[in-house]
Simulated assay, not measured.
Amino acid sequence: MSQELYANLAIFVLSLLVGFEVMSKIPSTLQTPMMSGANAIHGVVVVGAFVIAAEANNWLFYCLAFFGAFFAAVNVAGGYTVTDRMLGMFNRPKNSQPKEDDHK
Rank of each mutant, 00 (worst) to 15 (best):
S2M: 07
L5R: 07
Y6P: 06
N8I: 03
L9D: 09
I11E: 15
F12S: 04
F12P: 00
L14A: 12
L14T: 07
L16W: 03
L16C: 14
L16T: 13
L17P: 04
V18G: 01
V18R: 00
F20V: 04
F20L: 09
F20H: 04
F20K: 02
V22A: 04
S24V: 05
K25W: 08
K25L: 09
K25P: 05
P27S: 06
P27G: 00
T29W: 01
L30I: 07
Q31C: 01
P33R: 09
M35G: 08
M35E: 14
S36W: 01
S36R: 03
S36N: 00
G37C: 03
A38I: 11
N39A: 11
I41Q: 03
I41W: 06
H42N: 15
G43C: 08
G43D: 13
G48P: 07
F50H: 05
F50G: 13
V51F: 07
I52T: 08
A54H: 14
E55P: 02
A56E: 10
N57D: 14
F61D: 15
Y62S: 10
F66I: 13
F67P: 02
A69N: 11
F71R: 14
N75R: 12
A77T: 10
G79V: 13
G79F: 09
Y80R: 02
V82A: 05
T83F: 09
D84T: 12
G88H: 05
F90I: 13
R92P: 03
K94A: 12
K94G: 00
K94Q: 14
N95Q: 04
S96Q: 14
P98G: 01
P98N: 03
E100C: 06
D102T: 05
D102W: 10
H103D: 06
H103I: 06
K104G: 15
K104Q: 07
K104V: 15
K104I: 08
